[in-house]
Computed example of a mutant assay.
Amino acid sequence: MKRDVSAHLDIGITAPTTLEFQLAVAGQPGLELTESLVFELDGRTIWPQEISGPHGTRIHKFATGAGNLRVHYNATVFGVANPETASDYDIAVYLRPSRFAECDKLFGFAAAEFDGNAAPAELAAAVTGWVRRRLSYVAGSSDPIDGAVETLLCGAGVCRDFSHLVVALLRAVKVPARVVAVYAPGLYPMDFHAVAEAYIDGVWRVFDATGLAPRSSLVRIATGRDASDTAFMDNHGGEVFVNSMWVNAIIDGFLPFDNGVDPVSIV
């Protein structure tokens, strides 16, 4: 499988700050990756520090002064990633409430809506289908600080909101779950995408309640508890503005069919 992905950002920086980006394809055994990542502030190249995060996540960090920052990332991905097993620590972490997936506030609700005695695979399919039916995909309907509870009450959101609600409900019924930021061939309109992963019978399976892109073509960027771990940019200082952003992801050949039901892993 060959996939080509890219991200291009134009960012205005008002004062000295430290920035962290999660744009690069996650480092996973089994994948062959050719890539370039360029940061330029007012035409001058910035060389970032690369920090290795969990599950192959790569963070690129640097301090910078005010100015106009342009970011260009291009990658070609070949092959299939080796399956990742979950450690005991992973299972513990991905059952806990987190900033945007407040499963502790949904225990009673989830118990009333879903059969807690069902197998994890059945629960994951039931939760994903329920979220798909109950939420409307509406751009601009949520704020960056909204979590799963706000999404449930609002009844609408974007991909991060769908994934947060799926993850929170899965944790509430005792299925380990996490959020993954991905490049998504077939997504329209094209952007960074967020999906949920659940640990089922010793394998991480991907679930996307939006149904906007085939799951088997997704390319992993960052993996964590929720969007606080997977955001494409974090700012620690002066105010910044994203003036423009362009993301692209394509697959060599035809997009694979996805019925949204069969078990699929991000490869």
Rank of each mutant, 00 (worst) to 15 (best):
P48E: 10
V80G: 14
A181H: 05
G202K: 07
F241V: 13
A194L: 11
A222M: 03
H8V: 06
A101D: 01
G108A: 07
W47G: 07
Y73E: 01
S163A: 15
E20M: 09
W130A: 13
M233T: 05
A209N: 02
M1Y: 09
R70D: 11
G129L: 12
Y183D: 00
L31T: 04
D229L: 03
L106H: 12
P144H: 07
F162H: 13
S163M: 09
E50R: 15
V240L: 06
F241Y: 03
L33E: 05
E84S: 03
S216R: 13
Y89D: 08
H8D: 01
W204V: 12
W130R: 15
D115W: 01
V158G: 15
S244F: 04
F114P: 00
V219H: 05
T14C: 09
D90Q: 05
R133H: 14
V175N: 04
P29Q: 15
G157M: 11
P83I: 08
L218W: 01
G43W: 06
P97I: 10
W47N: 08
A110P: 07
D234G: 10
G140S: 04
N74F: 14
V264R: 00
S244K: 10
L95S: 15
L212W: 00
T210C: 07
H72E: 05
E197C: 06
A124N: 05
L41H: 04
Y188A: 10
P189W: 05
V203S: 13
Q22M: 08
A101Y: 01
G12Q: 10
I250H: 12
A213I: 04
Q22W: 00
T230L: 06
R70L: 10
P97Y: 14
S52T: 14
D4P: 00
R178P: 06
S98H: 07
D252P: 02
F207R: 01
W246C: 09
K61W: 01
E239T: 14
T76H: 13
L31N: 01
A81H: 10
M233I: 14
D226Q: 09
E84V: 14
P120G: 13
F192K: 00
P16C: 07
P54M: 06
T151W: 00
R215W: 00
Y137G: 12
V77W: 08
A227D: 02
